[in-house]
Structures are given as C-alpha cells and as structure tokens.
Amino acid sequence: MTTTLTPPQQPAPEKTPGVKSSRSRRPRSARAGGQFHAGPLTYVILALFTLGSLFPLFWTAVAASRDNTRLAQSPPPFWFGANLFDKAEVAWKDGNLGEAFINTTFVAGTSALTICFLSTMAGFAFAKLRFKGSNALLLVVIGTMMVPPQLSVIPLYMMVAKLDWSDQLQAVLLPSLVNAFGVFFMRQYLIQALPDELIEAGRVDGASTWRILWHIVFPIARPAMAVLAMLKFVETWNDFLWPFLVLTQHGSPTVQVALAGLGRGYTPDQALIMAGALLGTLPLLLVFVIFGKQIVGGIMQGAVKG
C-alpha cells in the first residue's frame, strides 16, 4: 500500500474560487509569518490585545491572593497579596483536587480520543462515501447539534439512575461521547482535505473501505483530529451541570464538581473560590504554555475552511 503512505501530491484542481492560480503551494516562508515585516505599531496593538487577553487570568491570581475585605475596596488590588499559597493549599485539600485531576484527565482524555476516532469514521462516511439515506442521517446529526443541553440533563439522569451509575465515572463519560459537532467538523474537514483521487487509488489497489480509512483517511485527518481532541478535552474538563448531578466530592469527582464545595458557608470566601478557579484552570493553561506551538499549529492546520 505504498500509495497510501505518501501525502497527497496532486495539486488541488482549483484554489480560490474565481481566481486563476498556477501555484498551489506557497513558499515555506509564508507559513512562518506573513509577507510583511511587522512595524512597531503592530507590536503595540498586539500587546494591547494580549494584555486584555491575559489580564483577567492574572487578576484571578491576584484575587486569590487577597481576602474578601480587600477585594471590595476601591481602588481594587493590582498586585499579589500574601494569601495565594495558603488559599491554594486549602483549595487543594478541601476540594480533593488530586483525585479530581486524575478523574478528569481520565474522563476528558478517553472522551476526546474516542470522539476523535468515531467522528473521523462517521465524518469520512458522510464526506466521501455514497449510501442510501446519508442526507437524512446527516440532517439528524446537524439537528442534534442544536438541542439545548440544559434540558436533556433531566431525562438522562432518569436513565443513569435506572442503571445505578451514580458516583461512577462512566455516567459522565458515556453521555459525553455523543458529539454531533465532531462528526460535522470532521465531515467538513475531510470534504476538502481528502482528495477523491486518493480514495480511488486505494480502491484500484484493492483496499477495503476499512483499510482506506486506516491508511488514507486517518493520516490526512490527523490535524483536525488533534483540534477536535483539544476542543473536546477542554469542554469536558470544564463541564459542570451534568457531572455535578451524577458525581459527588468523594465519589470520583471531576475538577469542577470538586470546586463546587469551596468557600462554603454563610460567608463565601471569594479569595478561596478564586484560588479554586485558578487551580482548576492551571493544568489546561500549563498544557497550553508548554505545548502552545503544537496546539496553535493544530488549530491552524485543522481549521475548517467552509
């Protein structure tokens, strides 16, 4: 199956609608940056946007390091107080965050990987295979994307209760696998990223559809799969309503469930709540910082163009 291992070589038949183009590949330099060098003004504007983007995160940490009284005074605090590590420690212990991180990593990771796999399979079928009823089925997929999630929670809970899955991670994991967006996303991506010639070449070599999926579709879909995995991971990590209904703090909590008990009392401790919010976000932020280049690269490669 040599054909399947080479990346698609055929130049795309048409580049941008309405524009004739002889070159299908841009020089490499274009990818590393645009055509022009940035002037000082660009840096200034970008710095402003970055400030807007990072300031709330920074201020979460500032708030976590203060106390209630200081948080409700004018002018607000701009720099760290003394409480950050104390609050973080309390949040960590009270919230049982160690276990929660493991559970959430497991649920979000499994969910993301499974969805990637299933969505690519289904997306491929919808994008490139012909079968009876495909249009109707695709409509169902798109339709499920539009169901408001707040309500399904009640009937879904009735089901989970019948199955006696309370406090078990599969109660969060299994329903999260229904992901119409993933199927739609992969379909859109594969329609344009997967040339029909490649599939035909595979067929000519006598490959079954399954082999084509495995050896042609998956390699090509990889960037989009990476994006989908990240989207799903972040979404599952941050989900609250449903996990809160089926899990408790000492029955395999996820991070957001664990955080729900923080700062409790007639006097909610704002700083502690902020510290919890910060700790809950930190792992994702760390991953973003460490693998920023790859994640950004993934999003950009996987970005669907239409």
């Binding site: 946007f49 970055t50 983007s53 990072l54 709330p56 995160l57 979460t60 972040v234 990590w237 941050n238 609250f240 957001q256 955080l259 919010a277 910060l278 809950g280 976000t281 994702l284 932020l285 991953v287 973003f288 910082v289 920023g292 280049k293 994640i295 950004v296 999003i299």
Partner: peptide, 13 residues
C-alpha cells in the same frame, strides 16, 4: 498562545 489562553478558562472561572 496568549491569544488562546482565555479559551482554557472554564465559563464559571
């Protein structure tokens, strides 16, 4: 990466 950072934050946080 800095532009993307807010995306990592949960709605609640």
């Amino acid at each position: 990466v800095s532009m993307l950072a807010p995306y990592a934050t949960s709605v609640a946080a």
